[in-house]
Write a protein that binds this DNA or RNA. Structure first.
Lengths: 340, 340
DNA sequence: ATGAAAGCGCTAACAA
DNA sequence: TTGTTAGCGCTTTCAT
């Protein structure tokens, strides 16, 4: 146990060469005679040498670490994004920290402090509401030359690359679909004061207006994004006899709470009511399967990761791009045609 | 943007003091006259100085970073553990990397490489099967003085502190409960060659033997831990008319696949069959609610995190402890009494 | 092709 | 109390 870790110096001594020669061999960036190179490789092997990352970073002023900030590390969609980001990052030699913000400004600030403190090279942001509140302080990162990109979420920050979802388009697809099935009274369950919600419900409303003369949209507002809140909101809506033939849930967590409330009231899907969700592919095994708006998390993640690293490494210097990636409506048996 | 980041030197110049004075003020470990201290704090403020973590670590030979290795970063139970670990770690000044191993030896090795490469101070391991396979190579960490503790999972590694779950006790509770309800034919869905499975089914069997003279345990083996695999296994068991009155699922992912298969075959819970799961509290909103074995993830995580850090900081030097923390059976409406 | 030496930003002896 | 200085382990000129 006492055996201390081998340094480049130890390797140099062991191989009988200078430390700069060792460095050249290890990094393979400077020509070295085969003879010495072999001896160095040998010594590295014997001593189990691994370059000290701290020393390297200190010199390079780069740490090869990134951060992924997201409001809820428990949300499967974000996790899938993280995983994909990590894969790309690892492939390019970067490690990434998963930092939860709990959707609170304070925790977000702490996370940002951490990014700065650890001198991370870049950060991915889930473009959520709390983040937008923090926006003003994001310059702290920019000032220090820390690269940033936005993923998922709905807020577009003009200063940075953003790879977001076409929420409006997604909402439109849902509305269009429901309208075609003959639905005229739709209950939306989800948070009220969220940009994402505005866009989703907005798209929905547009489609309804276009496709189905008279249509009514009722809101069942949840406090926050939890299944519990959705359960309560749904119970309230049922109690109020809101009179709806279809329910649209803001996301899978919301969906699962709403579905539970529906079940507890003996309302069956799709017989009693049709159900659609903005899904995180969380509920593949729910029965009946839920029609939902899905998204290529992995694709967007790879895009974002490569862009961030390209910025860091100076490969891309163009002005920030703002992309809205398409959502797809996966139709499953949770909705049915009704007679008007 | 071009503005480079302030170093301790800049602060020293700005405040008109020596760098060691700045250091003392920043770290508050050496007495400094109020006059100079104030000037330093001012300069720090003005220059927005934050000590360079790399430089610090280089000197300290400590990075204040930890790793949490787990087979599936998508599993809610592990994530909750991670979150709790992170909370404790942050409170004590450490950051933690979430590293997925996909339950594969190769990926686990890569994760270990990363731990070494980044010179992390310690690592949490989910004591899974793949990890046990890697066991022999874990000495690479030990050799370098990297602290380790095991959490969750079932494998006890004698060399390190382990905070595991009392799987057998959990299994026993399930068996006891089911036996009391009169069940004599029980189907177990889950992986076959897993230590955790052995222990869970073992406890179950013991309880059955103790409580219910003749009882039959049938295995529906899944390949891996996915809901998809469970769905297939359950379908097969139903097809084989295995004749069971109760199903016990290995975990929530398995449960969700099995439940889907049951539903697709028109078998209702608990009317058609009783259902119990080793749960990750993933399914609070499933209907009917599932009786399940639950666990205090947060508690174990805090325990493990504090222990790991205590080891790193030399606060604890006692020989490795091996604790098995109790599981609790949360009874919900998914099981019913049957007549024998 | 090889090596000596100067930092990278910080901490901690050691002097003053 | 304050300042000077020698590293921590590595990369990278710059000589040789």
């Amino acid at each position: 146990m006492g055996r201390s870790i081998a340094t480049i110096k130890d390797v140099a001594r062991e191989a009988g060469v200078s430390i700069s020669t060792v460095s050249s061999v290890v990094n393979g960036n400077k020509p070295v005679s085969e003879d010495l190179a072999a001896r160095v490789r040998d010594a590295v092997q014997r001593l189990n040498f691994q370059p000290n990352h701290m020393a390297r970073s200190l010199h390079a002023k780069r740490t090869q670490t990134l951060a992924y900030l997201t409001p809820d590390i428990t949300n499967v969609a974000f996790l899938r994004t993280f995983k994909a980001i990590e894969a790309t990052a690892h492939a390019r030699g970067y490690s990434v920290f998963l930092l939860g913000t709990d959707g609170s400004v304070k925790t977000t600030e702490e996370a940002i402090d951490r990014v700065i403190g650890l001198r991370m090279d870049g950060a991915f942001f889930t473009m959520s509401w709390a983040l937008a509140q923090t926006e003003l302080r994001l310059h702290r990162l920019a000032d220090r030359g820390i690269a940033m990109v936005g993923v998922s979420g709905s807020y577009n920050l003009p200063e940075i690359d953003c790879f977001l979802r076409d929420e409006e388009g997604g909402g439109y697809q849902v509305g269009d679909y429901l309208a075609r099935l003959g639905h005229r009274n739709i209950l939306c369950v989800g948070p009220l004061s969220s940009r994402a919600a505005d866009m989703r419900w907005g798209g929905l409303r547009t489609a309804l207006a276009a496709g189905a003369g008279e249509a009514k949209l009722t809101m069942a507002a949840t406090e926050g994004y939890t299944a519990g809140a959705a359960y309560d909101a749904m119970q309230a809506a049922i109690g109020a006899r809101a009179g709806f033939s279809a329910v649209v849930a803001f996301n899978d967590a919301i969906a699962s709470g709403a579905l539970a409330a529906l079940a507890d009231n003996g309302i069956e899907i799709p017989a009693g009511v049709s159900f659609v969700s903005f899904g995180d592919a969380h509920m593949d095994f729910h029965r009946p399967q839920i029609t939902s708006v899905t998204f290529d998390e992995e694709g967007i993640a790879a895009l974002a990761a490569n862009r961030l690293i390209d910025r860091i490494e100076g490969i891309v210097t163009a002005p920030p791009a703002h992309e809205r990636l398409p959502l797809k409506l996966s139709i499953r048996p949770s909705s049915r045609r009704i007679d008007s």
